[in-house]
Every structure is written in structure tokens, then in C-alpha cells.
Design a protein around this nucleic acid. Sequence first.
RNA 1: GCAUCUGUGGCGGAAUUGGUAGACGCGCCAGACUCAAAAUCUGGUGAGCUUUAAACUCGUGCCGGUUCGAUUCCGGCCAGAUGUACCA
Length: 922
Amino acid sequence: MEYNHRTVEQKWQKYWQKEQIFKTQEENTKPKYYVLDMFPYPSGAGLHVGHPLGYIASDIVARYKRQKGFNVLHPMGYDAYGLPAEQYAIQTGQHPAITTEQNIQRYRKQLDLLGLSYDWSREVRTCNPDYYKWTQWTFVQLFNSFYCYDANKALPIADLISAFEAGAAKDLNVACGKKMDFSDEDWKKFTPKEKSDILMNYRLAYLSDTVVNWCPALGTVLANDEIINGVSVRGGYPVERKSMKQWSLRITAYAERLLEGLNRIDWTESIKEIQRNWIGKSKGATLFFPLENGSKLEIFTTRADTLFGVTFMVVCPEHNIIKDITTEEHRLEVEKYVQWAKNRSERERLAEVKTVTGVFTGSYAVHPLNGERIPIWVADYVLAGYGSGAIMAVPAHDSRDFAFARRFNLPVKQVVVPTDEQEEDTSLWQESKDSREGTIVNSDLISGLQVKDAIDSIIKYIEDKKIGYGTVNYRLRDAIFSRQRYWGEPFPVYYENDIPKIINELPLLLPPIETYLPTETGEPPLARAKNWNYKGFPYDHNTMPGFAGSNAYYLRYEDPHNENYLVSKEANQYWQNVDLYIGGSEHATGHLLYSRFITKFLFDLGQCCKDEPFAKLINQGMIQGRSNFVYRIKGENKFVSFNLKSNYQTDALHVDINLVENDILNIEAFKNWREEFKYAEFILEDGKYICGWEVEKMSKSLYNVQNPDMLVERYGADTLRLYEMFLGPLEQSKPWDTQGIEGVSRFIRKLWRLYHRDGEFSVSEQLPSKAEFTALHKAIKKVEEDIEKFSFNTSVSTFMVCVNELTELKCNKREILEPLSILISAFAPHIAEELWCLLGHSTSITYADFPKYDSTYLEQTVFNYPVSINGKTRAFIELDLHLSQSDVEKIVLADAMVQKFIDNRMVKRFIFVPKRIINIVV
RNA sequence: GCAUCUGUGGCGGAAUUGGUAGACGCGCCAGACUCAAAAUCUGGUGAGCUUUAAACUCGUGCCGGUUCGAUUCCGGCCAGAUGUACCA
């Protein structure tokens, strides 16, 4: 009987579900292992073959670790809040919860087909009230906390109030929006509203007027990581800058810890580097340049060493000093420029990076060290959001300042001579010399120093003179946390006399509304909710952004039904953090950063015992589509086969890959595909129509989406699982190619036949031969090593080699086939379970012990020992060696062997070079 | 521009981490079974030279270095992928 994947796979999926084989409980006798997939957003399109890649990999690890004696937590859930469901709701009026539910059902069905060993009893959905209760709760904790740099952790806001009551406001070393200074007396006199506003300056979740990224097309605000090149990631709509009252999270308070934590986690260098750049730490100095009107201009620089090269200063168009310093004769021009810069969209700004614009204010600053007059300009190449929005321009050593100086004929003064160069006439320069290695010149007290020493020494000098101080600056901005949408978590906040107050009875449910659009007055959709208020006070009408629900979801899986805590201490003590996290790299600056931030915050609160959420991260590569093309002769309804197309003028048309097999077009199916092709003619080669192909993104519009359901139906889940792993290294992007799946399918049938004779199940109780043992133990050793290294592709090859060898040996011995079944069960669980059952076991293979390899069977009778003769030619001496012998033993044996050569006068002498090599001089 | 990663047959990719490069699979070629096809099985398959075989030579993006020995380590280029960018 040939292997029938349909009946076998169904049978075992039902069995696993009925017997709750994958249900996990805390078990203190076993070590824990937590392996997690990034939970998916259930979109309407369902899964394509790219999605399961990571799920299969994590499932292999989960199954392997169970057999290695670990208690494995392997849960799954849905990131169910999101824009597509809401937009669908706007179009159809259907509640997003309904669409979401349907999509989840479909996802679940597709996931079940793959035989993944999730513990579904722990499923979470971010849109369920008993889940988002904890998303809201986390927000409340952030609201009620501030960050103290002395304690280097978040503390209750009550501590801060006590400090204010004690008059310590100005001495606090805490994270805040702006430095404040008031006495205990002042604090007592403040109105409740004033107190509330002051505390907002310190809370980790705070309300403020912020310049935000407003996307008119989406009718909402977006976070920095939701925008690329001035347009929204979702939809590609233009984004404007606009000032609005918004909730933000003070992630900047954690900048240093987020940076430091990267050194303690096992993630790829590239993701860590992306996060480091995003946080963007730079050490430099804050300097105060006195102005001629008596006030001071604050600037930030990382190149304090070039202080003597300053020839002008630039402030950003938003800078509030502009109105005070602009002279009458320049006022009109400056105002015009500021207005122009303000109206320019983010996209225009980015598009015109190369064009230099700016105007002179008419005012001058005084150089704090040499007293020179320095003109102050306004230009939009200086950004409001970074540093103080003002710079000292050193055109000789900064390319942007250089471009500006050339454009407006400002002087360029060299103060650094790069290593291996001479001082030059700057008027001849084509570009600035930005190098940070070189010698300082023309700089009074620091001339002659190297750049690095000059920075240290000048900072020390300005600190002594009290004209500035060394500072650290981060590029990271606070995360804007409000969205003007419906389908998200409501803020547990109401407003009493314009003072935001927290609701402690959670969850605050998302109210039903009739239409999902913003109101006519531009209020968010939640403003439409009827009778939705807290004792007559209005609720906040914003909802939380997409990433809110995913920050701490991994903790909720540890204790998903706890009504009193996000996660109980006991459950968290046991499961701790995620040992292995698998998902795409597109979340590098979003989810993966926010989740680390919130984890650190919850750690400060004592809610979890680890301050990093994901100990090891693997980013699975994208599976690209392999598109097929047909070639239509221009102006005719005639198609020419791929290798003949050069004889004609043709257009390449995408053709649905489901109409093509091994690049051969199914002509009948093609004719029926679309009305216009019904009477098409074909020019064939060898009686076939051959299609062209190309690797592209997998997308519906390119007709190259490979649906896993069809492949499961045809080849079975085990084959698909093995094939997805066999495709190549997990972390690499690769094109989907259905052709190769045949090879894996053959392997599955071969494996089945190994346990059968003449169609009947048949195993022998005889003792296996040495060769049979060797084939098995080689595979055990290799597969174990491969899984530990996450190179699943080579494991599949190993299985194939092993089964080929055993087939050749006609091996059907129980002692070989039993461990082989276990070995293969992580990759192909259904067939393994069936064979396990046929072998007479009544319990699931899931909890069988992973076989141990025995090195005595890995013996090699002939060991090729490399030898260099006269330091040139390489030869090999065949030695009778054993792999389990140490290098020292091998060398001793080799030594004896070579001695024979000497005795036979074949060589004069020999020398041992490093551990394995023998150098012979003839 | 900057950062990270990757360059091996017709294709996807292996290589005990410095030791016989090309495992395994696809594709292709030949053969067996068959009236025939499908399925299945067996053998071959980096390039060059040679009538064939053996043997030999060349071969891991390019140039150089370290080494008895380099796909692997180091330096410099070239190409591609991804991320990011007026961040002072």
C-alpha cells in the first residue's frame, strides 16, 4: 500500500487535538523552553507559502526540544487590531470584529493543516476585552510613572509629587519634556490644572502638543517608524507635519538601557545595528553663544574640536529666537522664508535635499572664545527636533555647512588637517573635509592636538569657563501613542475640567458606532459613540496604535486566563522570557523596539523577571514569488514559446502560475482563464508552450501567489514542511519554486517503503548490522547539530542520505527504524506518528526521547591523513584510525606510519606542523 | 552617502569551521520496466584536454597577503540584497 497522506494526516491532527497532546502546563521538574512566532495580523487574503516558513521552523524546534526533555511553551495568537479591517468596515459598514473573526477562522484552518504543535488553549487576540484590559492597564502604569536617572528605573509618580512638596523640583535628575524650576511654596499654590500640566512633563505616558506626522488620507497620526521617505508605509500617502494634542510614550527615558541591552541578546548584528542607528546616540557638547542683544543661543555639536572653524550659525525655521534677533531690514525676507519652509511638505523637503536654501537674519553672535562676530542665518537643513534646533556651522569640516557656505559665499576656515595631508587654500576645495582623524590647526589653545584629544580638552575648557558642557544626544524620539481610528484599544481616560483622569475599572470597552469615519468636525470616529462617557465626563476619543497590543503579548501567553494580573509571579518565574523568537525583520524599529521598552518598564515595576523580552531572535527570509510569462506577438492574439520569442516582437504578460507546470503552459486552462485568450493561437516548440520566468515579490497582482492549501492537498503537510525547510537557509530570502517539491515527495514515499515489504508493514526484530547502525548514528549526530544551529535545510538532506543508505541495505530492523521515526518526527510529524503507531506504540511520538548517537558506530576504518611533502605537494596517508580517538592519538599513529616511510628510506625526515599535518622532507 | 549581509555548477544550495570543493534535491542525458505514456527504478552530469577510458590542467566575484595547504582568515576592489539618511 502506497502512503496516503490525506487519511494519515487528518487522522493524527484529530488525535492531537482530541488528546490535547500539545497542551502545556508549568512543570517544575523539567527545564522550560519558550519558542514563539511573531503573531500574525489576520488579513483577508489568507496565508501564502511565505507565511508558514517561520511557523514550521519554530515548530521543529518546539518538537525537538520536547523530545530533549524540555517543557516547551509554544503558543499562537492574533494581532487583531489594524487598519485593513477598519477600512473594510468604512466601505461596507460591517463591524471590524466580524471581518476579523472570519479572517481568524480562515487563518486557523490553514495553520491546522500544517500540523503545527501550538497550545491553542493559550491563544490571545489583541482585540478581546480580556486581553486589551492588560494593554490598557500597562498604559495606566506608564501614566502613573516617571523615570528617575539616579535610580535608573521607573518610579511611581507619587514619589515625584512628594519631591515637589519637599521643594526638590530643580534638583531632580529625571526624564522630562523640559527642565522645570519651582519651590514647594509654588507647588502648593498651583491649581489642579497647573499641577496636572506639570506632571505631564514627567509621566511616561503623557499628553502634549506635539508636532506630529499627520496623514490626511488615512485621517490619522503616524509614528516615525510608520513613515518612509515622507509617505505612509501603509498605502504610500503623503504625510504632513501638524501640531496636535497627543498621547506619547517617553521611550527616550530608556534610550541608554535599550542600547546597552543589545549587548546581552542573541540577535543578528544587522537588526541590532538598525536599532542602534535608530536610537542614534551621539556624544558631544552643548554650547552657548552670546548674542549681541545680550541673550544666548544654545547649540549642540559632536565636533567641539572645530569650534574655531565656525564662520556662521544656523537656526531652524521653527526656532523661537528668530523673531527676537531678526533686524528690521531683513524681517520681510525672513518671515517669507519661515512661512515657505513651514508649508513645505515632508516629501518635498526630502525630494529637494540637494537644494540649499536659507536667509540671513541680520544679527550676529559672538564667538565665546575669540570674540569674533558670527552671522546668524535661518535654514531648513537644520531640524527642529534634534539637539536645540540651532548649530554652529563649520563649513570646512561639515559637508552640509560647506554646501551652504558656497551657496551664500560665506567664508570657509580650515581647522583640521586630516592625517597624511597638508593645510590647503580652502577656496580651491570641492568638498569639506569631514574626517575625524587629523591634527587641529588655527585653533589657539588646542592647535596641534589630534581630533579626539581636542574634543576632550575643549569640552573640559568650556565647562571650566561655564559656556557649555559635554552632553549626550539621542536621535530617538518619544513614541506618539494616539491614533484617530476606531479599531484599536480605547484609552482608559476621561477629562474632568480638561484634566485627564484615569479609569481604574478595566477594561474600558470599545463602544459600538454606526459609521467608522471621522466626524464632520474632524473628531476621531469614537466621538460618534452614543452615551459614551464617564459619569458625564467625556472619554478620550483616540485609540492606541497597532503596536500597543503586541508589546507584552509574550507575557500574556505565560498566564493567559489570569483575571488579576497580566502574568502571575509564579508563571513568569517559570517561563521567564522567550528563548527563541522567530519572525520577519521588518519590525526592527517598531515592535521589536517598543516591546523591549515596555518589557524594561514592566521589569522596573516588578511585573516580570527579565528586562529583555526575546533572548534569541531569528529573522526568517522572505519567500519571493516566481512569476511566469507568456509572450504575445505585438498586435496579434498569438503567443510564442519562450525559446522562439527572439524571432518576433513580443510583449511579456504575467500568467497565473497555477496554469503552468514546470514552465510548461497548460494551453486549455490558459484559454479558459480569460475571455480575451479564448481564441488565442500558439507557436510551440517540441509541441509545448514554454513560459519564461522571473523572481518577483509574491503578490496577487503578479499572479505568482502560491497557496499552501493546494500543496498540502496534493503532496501533504509533511512534504510541504520538509520542502519549505529544504529550500535554503532559514534567514535567507529565496524564490519559491514548486518544481523541487517532487524530490521531497519521493523521499516521503521512500521513507514509507522502508517500513513496508510488498505493501505490508514489516519490521524485523533482528540485530542490525554495523553499516545500518552507522547510517542511523551519522544522521542522529548531524540532525542534532543542525537543529541546534537552526540549519534545517541540511537536516532534510541528511534524512535523504540516511533513507537512501538504509534502502540500499534493505534495512527494516526495528532497532534502526524506531529511532529513525523519532528523528524525523519534528520535521514530518504526521508520517512519523503513523509509523510510530505501526511500530506498536500507544502513546504519541511527541514525547518520545530524542535518540542519542553512539560514536562507536561513526568509525571510519580508513582515515585520510593529509601530508605535505617538501612543503609543497599534498598527499594522503591512509591510516587505520577511529573518529573517537583524540588528535594526540591520531598524531601518534601517524607518527608511527611516517616512521615506516623513513625506515624504508622513502623520506629523510619529517616535521609536525600544527595539530593534524605532517610535513615530510624527501 | 552610511550601515549590515551575501557572491560556489544550468538552478536551490552542502562542505566536519583552515584539510580530497560541489553533499542532498531540482533540471538535463542515457538505460530498465511498458504496445505506449505516466509512475517507479538504475547510471551519468563543474569546465578543459583526449576518439573513449585512465591520467592531467583549471576552477568557490576580482587582485593581493598569511599558511605546507584558503570557499573558509586578513587587506583592497567589483557586484547584488536589505535597512537608513540634511541627526550637526
